[in-house]
Design a binder for these strands. Structure first.
Length: 916
RNA sequence: GCCCAGAUGGCGGAAUAGGUAGACGCGCUGGUCUCAAACACCAGUGCCGCGAGGCAUGCCGGUUCGAUCCCGGCUCUGGGUACCA
């Protein structure tokens, strides 16, 4: 009987679906385990072989955990709102809902072919109203809460109102937007609008004027993590800074908790580092500099360098600029600010080295020296960080140094022996000089001493700043969750919870309106109780922030997640996905979870206990070389003899870098009559590792691999390719070896087309092979070292083959071990072995050390210290010979001399353990 | 610039208590089977050398009886971040 993967895979995929093999329910009799994949955005291009890498790993782990007796929650869904579908809609007029549905169907059929063990009954789609109801619900909760720094948690706005009514806002310690202080009387006298505005500064979901990343090409604002190097991540369009009133989430309120709780997570250090850097905690001080009659607050982490301040700088957007600019300087300052406004983010970055700035005409007073220092404006100071104003210490800050050089401002060195003629001395080390009472201290002592003095004099205080900004939550787009907010006389008001979801209306065109409003403004009757509804929609990360909770009970209509389900499944035990979400989704999701935790809706402070980043599978492109102005192509090895152009060629008509000439001629009409210059009768293509993309003709579709090798081979091969976390190019060179292994495994069960197994007791040799494998595979899966476990299977199979093993028990256990990797073939063999139930209900074999023990013996020697070394010994060596061998042959004989060894443990041909 | 990770045959990669470097797979070479091919199986395969032997885990040094592994200093590659005061 031949290994017919096509038949086997179709058969078992159909059976799993029909028998709902992977459906799970809460079951308190079993320990739970929650394995989650980062759900995909269903793009029009479909899945390529890179996408399933993480899914295969998580599937193996899920199947393994089931064999280990766990109740495994392993769901899948779609992150279905987003820009590409809408851009496509603008181009083609097709409704994004329709293209999204088509793409999802395509994804689903591609995933089904690979044989994943998802509980599809729990599928979620972020764009379905039943799902986004809960995204809107969470938003309303955030709108209805504020962050109390005293209790370090979110509390209802009603409580805040009660405080305002009693004593105003002077003593409220909240994470909030700066604004005026008011008394209880003033609060009571406020108009509705004023009250709304005051509360808005406290809400966790709030509307506020802020400088945003505006992408004119996409017609929308973007969050910081959606912009890379001044270009939009989606589309790569330029982004500029613009002040706009936008919905925002007060993520910054949670900065410290997001930082602290990283400690308890089983994530890689590098990923935690990325989050730490993104949160960017820095400890320093706020200090007041008098400028005329004004108190200008600056933030610094180097209070110790205050004696070296030679000027001050304001951000162009700072509110101080207008007040501090003298009439004589006004024209120049206005001109400078107009120029910076025109620059895009990209230009600002690319011009990093160009130092620009302008003098305001005002002078500030150094609070320590009393000296007057000029106040400048420059775009190297950011309005969004600290106070938007700095004290400049050119001797010890490279940016200040560059600025001082450019504008000829004095540079005063403050650290003994430092040379600031060519560059600043930024390191926090050395002994202070020229620094009044700080002189003679080390920098490490001086920093806190300076801050203490600042606090003692009442000219400032300790302050911790975070780089993490509040998340901008509005998008001026159609294909996203509508906000459950309407405007009553201009006051943003929440839609009643019972009226959720606010469903996305159908509209005629997906473009902004003539007067620049978002597409939702085109919707007829976009109102709530007669009042206009918000016209922007939520960003992509809204729907992905709490989806892992919804999987716990996606059909319940009374809550995001039921208490019972949440208390059973708790949080994600294993999360697999790409690093690209390190500073986006993984921050937002943690924030969202913590907020819901504060409100008592979820029982764990962190959503994802363990996280693995699978590497990217890159494309391996192939090239042909056309001799210029001809239709002749020259093989890679001979191309240097001609003047050629390198052309990408479809990798699907290239096999092991050999071009299929006929297929090439048929590939495109222009190559119909192509001529070739071959080497050794073959056309060899050049190659390069690049991103997998359509335009480079290097996309490999998993369907093709399933056709020609089968899903089991694809699964096994993707794991065999290398460590899960490593990025690697897709290369089918080794796939035959993996396929060969499966065929060999299949043949172990048969003799002349007949199932042929012996029922006797396994031999000692067979048991040794089997139990070594049980140990190795179990350990490897636990450590996500799937590539080495595939090798272990190959080695074990070779050994069993050498032993001519056809023992039923041994092969049955081997099948169970292999089942998580290649479930189809294992199900088939399992059923041929007479089992009626799916192999997923089997138990992972128990490892028995007895079977794998080496021939070990111990005997006393004398020696101090403890060490191990290796030595070659003949088989069946006796103790005396062994000792002699150790002393004579070992590289360590010299070292052993004169020491007293107590005991040496010998394994023939292997390790000898020497104990003191 | 800063932070993180990595560098091992012709190739992907093993070796994670400091102890036979190169497992396993690909590729390549030779052989068996076959009319032939495919499949399968057997043997060989780090480099140099006819050989004995020598050299080998990016480079330079150190610790150790012994270093791919630990320490110091470089080089290069990949990822993150970018005026965050």
């Amino acid at each position: 009987m031949e290994y017919n993967y096509k038949e086997i895979e179709q058969k078992w995929q159909a059976r799993w679906a029909a028998e709902k093999t992977f459906r799970v329910k809460e079951d308190s009799s079993k320990p739970k385990y929650y394995v989650l994949d980062m759900f995909p955005y269903p793009s029009g291009a479909g899945l390529h072989v890179g996408h399933p890498l993480g899914y295969i790993a998580s599937d193996i782990y899920s199947r393994y955990k089931r064999l280990k007796g766990f109740n495994v929650l392993h769901p899948m869904g779609y992150d279905a709102f987003g820009l590409p579908a809408e851009q496509y809609a603008i181009q083609t007029g097709q409704h994004p809902a329709k293209t999204t549905r088509n793409n999802i169907n395509r994804y689903r059929s591609q995933m089904d072919r690979i044989g994943f063990s998802y509980d599809w009954n729990r599928e979620v789609r972020t764009c379905s109203p039943g799902y986004y109801k809960w995204t809107q619900w969470a938003f309303l909760k955030m709108f209805g809460h504020w962050y109390n720094n005293e209790s370090s948690k979110a509390e209802p706005v009603e409580k805040l109102v009660a405080i305002f009514e009693k004593e105003g806002n002077a003593n409220v310690n909240a994470a909030c937007t700066e604004g005026p202080v008011f008394s209880a009387e003033e609060w009571k006298a406020f108009s509705e609008k004023e009250k709304s505005d005051a509360l808005m500064r406290y809400r966790i979901a709030y509307q506020g004027e802020t400088s945003v990343n505006w992408c004119p090409k996409l017609g929308t604002v973007l969050a910081n993590d959606e912009v890379k190097e001044g270009l939009s991540v989606r589309g790569g369009f330029p982004v500029e800074q613009k002040k706009m009133k936008q919905w925002q989430l007060r993520v910054s309120a949670y900065a410290q908790r997001l930082l602290d709780d990283l400690e308890g997570l089983d994530w890689t250090e590098s990923l935690k580092d990325m989050q730490r850097n993104w949160i960017g905690r820095s400890q320093g001080a706020e200090m007041i500099f008098k400028v005329g009659n004004w108190d200008v607050k600056i933030f610094t982490t180097r209070a110790d360098t205050v004696f070296g301040v030679t000027f001050m700088v304001l951000a162009p957007e700072s509110e101080w600029v207008e007040r501090l600019t003298t009439p004589e300087c006004k024209a120049a300052v206005d001109e400078y600010i107009a120029q910076t406004k025109k620059k895009t983010e990209r230009e600002r970055i690319s011009e990093t080295k160009k130092v620009t700035g302008v003098f305001t005409g005002s002078y500030g007073t150094n609070p320590f020296t009393g000296e007057k220092v000029p106040v400048w404006v420059s775009d190297y100071v950011l309005s969004g960080y600290g106070t938007g104003a700095i004290m400049a210490v050119p001797a010890h800050d490279s940016r200040d140094w560059a600025f001082a050089k450019r504008f000829n401002l004095p540079i005063i060195p403050l650290i003994e022996g430092c040379d600031v003629s060519e560059s600043s001395f930024d390191a926090k080390e050395g002994t202070m000089i020229n620094s009044g009472f700080l002189t003679g201290m080390s920098v490490k002592e001086a920093i806190p001493a300076a801050i203490d003095e600042v606090e003692r004099r009442g000219i400032g205080k300790r302050k911790i700043n975070y780089r993490l900004r509040d998340a901008i939550f509005s998008r001026q787009r159609y294909w996203g969750e509508p906000f459950p907010i309407y405007y009553k006389d201009g006051i943003p008001s929440p839609v009643d919870e019972k009226d959720l979801p606010v469903t996305l209306p159908s509209i005629s065109s997906f473009l902004p309106t003539e007067n620049g409003e978002p597409p939702l403004a085109r919707a007829k009757d976009w109102t709530y109780n007669g009042y206009p509804l918000e016209t922007s929609t939520m960003p992509g990360f809204a729907g992905s922030s709490a989806y892992y909770l919804r999987y716990m009970g996606p059909h319940n209509s009374y809550g995001l997640v039921s208490r019972e389900a949440n208390e059973y499944w708790r949080n994600v035990d294993l999360y697999i996905g790409g690093t690209e979400h390190a500073t986006g989704h993984l921050i937002y999701s943690r924030f969202w979870n913590k907020f819901l935790y504060d409100l008592g809706y979820v029982c764990e402070i962190e959503p994802f206990r363990k996280l693995i980043n699978q590497g990217m599978i890159q494309g391996r492109s192939n090239f042909v070389y056309r001799i210029k102005n001809t239709n002749t192509f020259v093989s890679y090895g001979l191309k240097d003899q001609y003047d050629t152009t390198e052309i990408h060629v479809n990798v699907n008509i290239v096999n092991a870098d050999r071009l299929d000439l006929e297929a090439f001629r048929n590939w495109m009409p222009e190559y119909r009559n192509a001529e070739f210059i071959l080497e050794n009768g073959e056309y060899i293509c050049g190659w390069a590792v690049e991103k997998m993309s359509k335009s480079m003709f290097n996309v490999v579709n998993p369907d093709n691999i399933c056709d020609s090798y089968g899903a089991d081979t694809l699964r096994l091969y993707e794991m065999f390719l290398g460590p899960l976390e490593a990025s690697k190019p897709w290369d089918t060179k080794g796939i035959d070896g993996v396929h060969r292994f499966l065929r060999k495994f299949w043949r172990m069960f048969f003799n002349n087309d007949e199932l042929c197994l012996s029922d006797g007791k396994p031999s000692a040799a067979e048991l040794k092979v089997l139990h070594k494998l049980i140990k190795k595979v179990g350990d490897d899966i636990e450590n996500f070292s799937f590539n080495t476990s595939v090798s272990a299977f190959m080695i074990a199979l070779n050994e069993l083959q050498t032993l001519k093993c056809n023992n039923r028990e041994v092969l049955e256990q081997f099948t169970i071990l292999l089942a998580p990797f290649t479930p189809h073939i294992c199900e088939e063999l399992w059923s041929l072995l007479g089992h009626e139930e799916s192999i997923s209900g089997a138990r992972f074999p128990e490892y028995n050390e007895e079977y794998t023990k080496e021939n070990t013996f111990e005997y006393p020697v004398s020696f101090n210290g403890k060490m191990r070394f290796k030595i070659e010994l003949p088989k069946n060596v006796d103790a005396a010979t062994a000792q002699k061998a150790v002393l004579e042959n070992s590289l360590s004989a010299k070292w052993l001399e004169g020491r007293s060894v107590k005991k040496i443990i010998v394994v023939p041909g292997k390790i000898i353990n020497v104990v003191c």
